[in-house]
C-alpha cells in the first residue's frame, strides 16, 4: 500500500509538470503566431483556424506558422526521447547522441547527399541515417576494443566528431555558394522552409516509435537502476536494451533528417525534465514535452531576436546548450561527483 502511495505522489507532480509544459507550448505557439514575421492578431488567427478570415490570414496560418510549429514540437520531442533513452541506458547525462558522434555523423551523411549527389528530402534523410549509424558504429566499435565504459566512448566521440567536422567544412567550402549556405543552415539545425511534407515524415515514424518507447518507460527506469535489479524483477535485459537503442536511433535519425541536427536538445531536455519533475530516474513523457518547448522557444528567439533575418534554431540552442553543458559539468565536478 505504501509503495502504491509513493507512486501516486510522484505521478501527481509529473502530471502537473506535463500540464505546465503543454501550457508553455501553447503560449509559445501563440506568441510566435502574433509577433513573428507576417503577424496575425489573436482574433484573426482564431478566425483563420476556423476556416474564416482573409485569404492571407489563412495562408500565413496553415502554410507558414502551423507546419513550422508542429514540426518544431515533434522534432524537439524526438530528439529528447532519443537523448533520454541514451542517457538512461548509459546512466550518464553525457551519453547523448550529440556527444557520442551520432549527430555529427548524420550531418556528414546528409551533407554528402546534398552536395555530392544533389539529393532531395528522401535522399537527405537516407544519408543522415546512414551517416549517423556509421559514426555511432565506429565509436562503439572502437570503444569495445578496449572497454573502459562511457568515458572512453565520450572521448572517442569527441575525436571522431572533430575529424568529421573537418570533412564537413571541406565539403561546404567546395560547393556552390547557394548550396553551401543551405547546407550550412541545415547543419546548424533549422525549421526554415520546412512544410507539411517534413511533418508527415516525422509523424509517420513517431506514431510508431513514440507509443512503443513510452510503453517501455517503466523497464527503462528499472534498467537505469542496474542490470541486476532489472533482471531480478523479470526484465529481459539484453533484448529490451537492443530494442530501446534501435527505437531511440530511429527517433533521432528522423528528427535529424527533417530539421538537421538541432544542437543539445537531446542532452539538455532529459536533464531539465528530471529537475522539473524532481524524480531520480529519467521520465520519457516529460522529457519529450521539454524538448518540444525548447525547440519552439529557441525557434521563436531565433526569429524574433534577429528579425528580419531568419536564423536557424540550432544557433540559439547551440549557444544556450553549450553554456548549459559547461554549467552542468562545473556543477557536477564542484560537488566532486563523477559525471
Amino acid at each position: 500500500m505504501r509503495a502504491r502511495g509513493v507512486a501516486v505522489k510522484v505521478d501527481t507532480r509529473t502530471v502537473a509538470v506535463c500540464a505546465g509544459l503543454l501550457v508553455a507550448l501553447a503560449a509559445i505557439a501563440l506568441l510566435t503566431i502574433t509577433s513573428v514575421g507576417a503577424r496575425l492578431t489573436v482574433a484573426g488567427a482564431i478566425e483563420a483556424a476556423g476556416g474564416g478570415g482573409t485569404l492571407r490570414e489563412r495562408f500565413v496560418l496553415t502554410e507558414l506558422r502551423l507546419p513550422r510549429l508542429v514540426l518544431g514540437a515533434l522534432v524537439g520531442a524526438a530528439f529528447a526521447l532519443g537523448g533520454a533513452v541514451f542517457q538512461s541506458l548509459s546512466r550518464n547525462p553525457l551519453g547523448s547522441p550529440d556527444i557520442i558522434g551520432f549527430t555529427t555523423g548524420a550531418s556528414s551523411g546528409a551533407l554528402a547527399a546534398i552536395l555530392l549527389f544533389g539529393a532531395g528530402p528522401t535522399g537527405i534523410a537516407a544519408g543522415a541515417i546512414a551517416g549517423g549509424l556509421a559514426a555511432a558504429g565506429v565509436v562503439y566499435g572502437l570503444a569495445s576494443l578496449r572497454g573502459g565504459g562511457m568515458t572512453r566512448i565520450i572521448l572517442i566521440g569527441i575525436g571522431v566528431s572533430a575529424m568529421l567536422l573537418a570533412v564537413n567544412n571541406f565539403l561546404i567550402s567546395r560547393a556552390r555558394l547557394d548550396a553551401a549556405v543551405a547546407a550550412a543552415a541545415w547543419l546548424t539545425g533549422t525549421l526554415n522552409g520546412r512544410g507539411w511534407d517534413q511533418v508527415l515524415l516525422v509523424v509517420a515514424v513517431l506514431v510508431v516509435v513514440g507509443p512503443v518507447l513510452l510503453s517501455y518507460g517503466r523497464r527503462l527506469q528499472l534498467l537505469e537502476l542496474g542490470d541486476e535489479v532489472a533482471r531480478g524483477v523479470g526484465v529481459r535485459v539484453g533484448a529490451v536494451r537492443l530494442r530501446l537503442v534501435l527505437l531511440a536511433v530511429a527517433a533521432v535519425a528522423v528528427a535529424t533528417a527533417a530539421a538537421g541536427p538541432v544542437a543539445f536538445i537531446s542532452l539538455a531536455a532529459p536533464q531539465i525534465a528530471r529537475r522539473l519533475t524532481g524524480s531520480a530516474p529519467l521520465q520519457l513523457l516529460p522529457s519529450a514535452l521539454t524538448g518540444a518547448v525548447l525547440v519552439l522557444a529557441g525557434d521563436f528567439a531565433a526569429q524574433w531576436l534577429f528579425a528580419p533575418a531568419q536564423l536557424p534554431v540550432g544557433v540559439v540552442t547551440g549557444a544556450v546548450g553549450g553554456g548549459y553543458l559547461a554549467w552542468l559539468l562545473s556543477r557536477e565536478w564542484r560537488k566532486g561527483r563523477t559525471a
Binding site: L94, I154, A184, A263, F306, V315, T317, G321, G322, L329
Partner: peptide
C-alpha cells in the same frame, strides 16, 4: 569535455554571424 562544450557554443555564435 569542457573544451568540447565551450567550442560548441562558440561554433554556434560563429555560424550565426556567418549565416546572417
Amino acid at each position: 569535455l569542457a573544451g568540447a562544450a565551450v567550442g560548441a557554443a562558440l561554433l554556434s555564435v560563429t555560424n550565426a554571424v556567418a549565416l546572417l
